[in-house]
Design a protein around this nucleic acid. Structure first.
Length: 585
RNA sequence: GUGCCCGUAGCUCAAUUGGAUAGAGCACCAGCCUUCUAAGCUGGGGGUUACAGGUUCGAUCCCUGUCGGGCAUGCCA
């Protein structure tokens, strides 16, 4: 029996069943032969529902088909027995030796265990965070960052060539507001008091940037307030003073007064915020390959070019002085403006150019991680791609729901503009990187996440992060006390692993590559988090029931090989999630 | 009003995308440290999967309707 290269058992069996089906009947190409892990030990290790799927086309009862499939199944060295059960399930029992030998594969693969060639080198771009660089990242961005980074790691491990990208919205009105806000704070430093608009950026970081400019350049950017306040729309009696119109007029005046200097301040605050953002994310274990500037799309003429392309393909029309894209042709609720009455391109226009550019850069697949509040935006972007001749299925949008912080059982408030929000940095300082990363991906991405700060900081068994890390540290501790060479464990004959806890753990270990593949296919990092908790749980239980450093060497080595494999997987899995795997706790 | 998402144990959530008796963690109750880390373990109660129909060998999952919640519905980004 050759077990030197243990297979993915699921795929291995699926191939066998496919052959068996082909021997019985002409198999339709659409037929999916899949094995499922069983929930009950009495059902074996894997079950196949192929017989039931074939019931209709073969006009026979599933149990008879199952018998026939079994009769035509090629031999496999890994199968102990195989039987028909229930309505027509085919249950496969794995040989204990196959499970035991699997440890060699784990221990030889080391950090590569759980990696696969699923992606076949396909170029995938994952775009995430992409927050406006107008202030510190808050806890909402944190979830996108954690999910995007983990997902990128998972896809990379699954054999995709992943490129992580941050789209920098450096071209829009929000940047102008930040520039204005900073300049107003700067003027205050020179004792020029202009009422600070309530709809400008309030945070202390704005004042900090103003101080930096003042320290470096003194009064160079000081101008008298009269010119700044000219042409201001007169607010009606009792009406809101700080309207968007007034803010825009302030920006326009600032641009006029400052001239070339406006660009300096604009560029300064952008660089400052981007640097802060990059730094913040790096400390969160999140790094990007590309920081893509929205402004560059305008500078290179790509926006205008893209709009021209749409026009050539007759997907644009003029109405009310604006240029509209016929997104209703592609299932959108209404057509969308790409160029405003005042000649300005909309954000949507640059976004079309951006997405076209992504595919022109040769990505086979593009994944956008968006806040769930952007879901209404999907049809128009996909529509635009389709209009430009790009298969919209190549763009996958993963929606991430907001995280809501809870402290002492109470919601912690966060409003973005008012400057009261909880920043990602504060969260990291409070709960630590590991807990934050783990908690963020503990739920399915498109589900709301209640982030319990008290739980994340608790140093008790309630905290799932520590629970998993503790399992890892425990193994390390045992291996440290063992005086052998760890490399030898990869050659151990694990035949002594025969009790139910050990066989259960072996099967759990065998499951890991399936979990990483499914997580990659379904863009679901939370599956890794769940798996790690289950593995840790089974390990802790085993730890409490069984001694590893026993006198009998064959048993001792077998058990050490088992827990060393567990340690390897915990380490690999935590790495995917960006969580550290400490040797000691 | 319309569109999308959601509704699973007291709470927070899973469920290999249509599979077998729906699972974890908190919380609650009762136990386990002279033994490789008690940040751990063992046992216990907890459910008409919001509700009503439909599709089929089989439904938490698919379809229809009702109720309840979230988001979206800009010539903002």
């Amino acid at each position: 029996m050759d077990l030197s290269i243990p297979p993915h058992f699921k795929t291995h069996f699926a191939e066998l069943f496919h052959q068996a089906a082909s021997a019985i009947t002409a198999v339709e190409p659409t037929l999916r032969v899949e094995l499922a892990r069983t929930k009950q030990a009495s059902h074996g290790d894997y079950s196949c529902n192929l017989a039931m799927q074939l019931t209709k086309s073969l006009h026979n009862n599933p149990r008879e088909i199952a018998q026939s499939l079994i009769a035509h199944l090629p031999d496999s060295p890994y199968i102990e027995k195989i039987e028909v059960a229930g309505a027509g399930f085919i249950n496969v029992f794995l040989k204990n030796t196959a499970k035991q030998q699997y440890l060699k594969y784990v221990l030889q693969s080391r950090e590569m265990f759980g990696h696969s060639t699923l992606g076949n080198g396909k170029k995938v771009q994952v775009e995430f965070v992409s927050a406006n660089p107008t202030g510190p990242l808050h806890v909402g961005h944190g979830r996108g960052a954690a999910i995007g980074a983990s997902l990128s790691n998972i896809l990379s491990a699954a054999g995709y060539a992943v490129s992580r990208e941050f789209y920098v919205n450096d071209a829009g009105r929000q940047m102008d507001i930040l520039t204005l806000s900073t300049w107003l704070r700067y003027l205050e430093l020179d004792n020029i008091q202009i009422p600070f608009p309530s709809n400008a950026y309030q945070g202390d970081y704005v004042k900090a940037m103003a101080e930096l400019i003042y320290q470096a350049h003194g009064q160079r950017y000081v101008h008298q307030p009269e010119s700044l306040l000219q042409d201001m729309p007169i607010a009606a009696q009792g009406a809101e003073m700080d309207t968007d119109e007034r803010l825009d007029q302030l920006i326009a005046n600032a641009k006029k007064i400052l001239g070339e200097d406006y660009a300096y301040i604009h560029n300064f605050v952008l660089t400052e915020q981007l640097g802060d953002c990059r730094n913040d994310l790096m400390e969160f274990g999140v790094e990007f390959d590309t920081w893509f500037s929205e402004q560059s799309l305008f500078d290179n003429g790509l926006v205008a070019h893209t709009i021209e392309l749409l026009d050539k393909r007759h997907f644009l029309y003029q109405q009310d002085g604006a240029t509209w894209f016929r997104s209703t042709r592609f299932g959108d609720e209404k057509d969308r403006v790409v160029q405003r009455e005042n000649g300005q391109f909309t954000y949507f226009a640059s976004d079309i150019a951006y997405h076209l550019n992504k595919f022109e850069r040769g990505f086979d697949q593009v994944i956008n991680i968006w806040g769930a509040d952007h879901h209404g935006y999907i049809p128009r972007v996909k529509g635009a791609l389709q209009a430009l001749g790009v298969d919209p299925a190549k763009l996958e949008i993963a929606l991430v729901q907001f995280a809501v912080l809870y402290r002492n059982g109470k919601k912690a408030s966060m409003s973005t503009r008012a400057g009261e929000f909880v920043t990602l940095r504060e969260l990291r300082q409070e709960v630590g990187k590991d807990a934050a990363r783990f908690f963020y991906v503990m739920r399915k991405s498109d589900q709301h996440l209640d982030f319990d700060l008290d739980l994340a900081t608790s140093q008790t068994n309630e905290n799932p992060v520590y629970y998993v890390q503790y399992a890892h540290a425990r193994v390390c501790s045992v291996l440290a006390q063992w005086d052998g060479d760890r490399a030898d464990l990869a050659e151990v004959d694990a035949a002594a692993l025969i009790n139910p806890a050990e066989l259960g753990l072996l099967q759990k270990i065998i499951d890991y590559p399936d979990v990483t593949e499914i997580a990659a296919k379904e863009l679901s990092p939370h599956l890794i988090a769940f798996y790690l908790r289950e593995l840790a749980s089974e390990f802790h239980s085993y730890y409490n029931s069984t001694r590893f450093l026993v006198p009998e060497i064959s048993v001792q080595h077998a058990r050490l090989a088992l827990i060393a494999s567990i340690q390897q997987i915990l380490s690999n899995g935590l790495r995917l999630l960006g969580v550290s795997a400490p040797d000691k706790m």
